[in-house]
Design a protein around this nucleic acid. Structure first.
Lengths: 341, 341
DNA sequence: TTGAAAGCGGTACCAA
DNA sequence: TTGGTACCGCTTTCAA
């Protein structure tokens, strides 16, 4: 059976180009591979025809033969978190710059992970950057299937996995130290859901640090959002008999919710009567109405590191797991009194 | 040359499964195609082996042969806009639910579009949802290459293209009507960059509506972000000789910037002395410190519509361009006096 | 119900 | 520098 005519298909193939340029298909292929040997005249003719036909090599076919998809799966748990869009934008742009495409998986709930992993295997991505909780079994699958993986702000709990994390502990120390120095005595912590790695680490670090100074914080939990901060503060107010002096929130969004709640629902002046601190350094944290005292994650450096680690592991799958920890920068803001001076 | 052993490759192929199950490769393939005829016993044996080997059909090979990638390109101009993460999350989740993957292209600047389009052609995506400005030439390419396309909050300027848009005009009318009824007389508009379609439409609609009431607004421009709103208000204050009574911002983020600027930089009470309104209805607009008077875009419905339109066009490429316009819901908020009562 | 075989659109090796 | 050819891993006739 004769080959189908080019016009029948949506896009031209290397055969179409070859025929019209009067060369072999191999020649066309070589023209699109940097460093291949093609006579200048031949190349010119081929490229001219390719231009006419709007020929672009079919990435799918390339992937099949080279076993390289030039795609990386990016798995993100909740894009509406305000912090993640920034991460995603960074990762996406940096991967594009390296000529790698992003296959995006935005999870609504973390329970969707298994379905996502199935797709990841099927698409034979070159690697994955995951900002979602993975079970040990799920982590093992990456190893078994030899798909390079870098976790973002998560860790492999039972086995080591390459990961890029924010140093919540260091951040928490700085915040607590400042609050203690400013002579706050009654502390509250608004934590996120227990299954959040970064969240728990922040809470644990803050708690430890407070205890080392002889303080025992009140603890409440909520979602990592504005409403979570609002509700958290209400609970703390009830529990503390209104003696609360400082609140440490697991992220900026909660801190903002808590600040608004304090000011508008309880008419408590922030920071005069109540100090509120957060984590992340997201955009809204710097808005004039809040100026949240927080610790900023170096998102760009972390995104870059995640990509570097992933690309290294794509080239050399045998590289050992490595964990890179990034310290944050204290943004003093004005939602808390940090002392002294 | 003998076939390579399965263990040499990262993942099992249908041949590996076939060999171990003692059937032909075709049989394995059929097992994974719903509605194919396979004897129950055969299927059971094959599936058992597939399970052991962790076999998953290679999506790449399937794409090549079926000419269906089950991937949709999603192009978004600035993910950091606060409004887009919500859109992206919706689109991504709804496509996943339909077993379609998202190939994400997050543009830093709109000038990257050509490079992105090249990738889109090469990956032979089934279609594209684009929330970025496309030139007429670029739009034509989609037509020529027969890649179904749906624009999100953009339109084809010189030729009709399937698109889903927010009805900025209707929204602007509602906002302006309310402001005029409340007897504001001196208006300012903080617009976005001129190359933004939605932004310009909002500005034009607001201007027209104001003129129809006999008012001529002052106009300034900036980026669609917090700083843009801040700077915009400062400029308006200079231009208006402090007579400014109402400011219409091209989006909520600018409105928030303007509100903060009014209150903190100029000590102007909002809404008592100055009314500020925005567009979109993003999360922060509802925060207690702002409660922006705005018009909310029905993001979920719009995302759903975009996907429906795209899928229809993937099935039936000959469908004519259609433009679906979604009205917004006025959120009265408390950043503006809308009248009367 | 099953297996053989012909592609899908490329890459890369080999001989000319 | 070129063209021929054997794959990559799957889907899909077509016979058996």
């Amino acid at each position: 059976m004769a080959k189908k005519d080019a016009s029948a298909r949506a896009s031209a193939t290397s055969y179409d180009v070859a025929r019209r340029a009067g060369v072999s298909q191999s020649a066309v292929s070589r023209c699109f591979r940097p460093g291949a040997s093609v006579a200048p005249a031949t190349r010119a003719r081929i490229m001219a025809v390719a231009g006419e036909l709007g020929y672009q090599p079919n990435a799918i076919a390339q992937q099949l033969i080279t076993r390289r998809s030039n795609m990386v799966a990016v798995v993100i748990s909740n894009l509406t978190n305000l912090y993640y869009p920034e991460v995603l934008a960074e990762i996406s742009q940096r991967l594009s710059a390296r000529d790698i495409r992003v296959l995006l998986f935005a999870l609504q709930t973390e329970s969707d992970v298994d379905a996502v992993l199935d797709q990841i295997w099927r698409y034979r991505v070159d690697g994955a950057i995951v900002a979602a909780r993975l079970s040990t079994g799920q982590l093992r699958q990456f190893a078994v299937r030899q798909v390079p993986l870098v976790l973002y702000n998560r860790i492999g709990e039972e086995e080591p996995v390459a990961s890029v994390c924010f140093d919540s502990t260091g951040g928490a120390r700085q915040l607590v130290a400042g609050l203690v120095e400013a002579r706050h005595c009654h502390f509250g912590i608004i934590a996120g859901p227990e299954d959040s790695y970064v969240g728990e680490e922040r809470v644990r670090a803050a708690t430890d640090e407070l205890r080392s100074h002889g303080f025992e914080p009140l603890l409440v939990r909520g979602q990592f959002d504005y409403a979570g901060g609002d509700r958290g503060l209400r609970q703390l107010m009830l529990m503390s008999d209104s003696k609360l002096e400082a609140v440490i929130c697991a992220n900026d969004l909660m801190a903002i919710g808590a600040i608004d709640c304090a000011r508008h629902a309880f008419s408590i002046a922030v920071p005069e009567r109540l100090s509120v601190v957060g984590f992340d350094g997201v955009g809204p944290a710097t808005w004039a109405s809040y100026q949240v005292t927080t610790v900023r994650q170096p998102v760009r450096r972390m995104a870059e590191a995640a990509i570097e680690m992933l690309l290294e592991r794509i080239e050399r799958p045998d590289l050992p797991p490595e964990r890179r920890l990034f310290g944050g920068q204290l943004l003093p803001g004005s939602s808390a009194r940090l002392g002294p001076a």
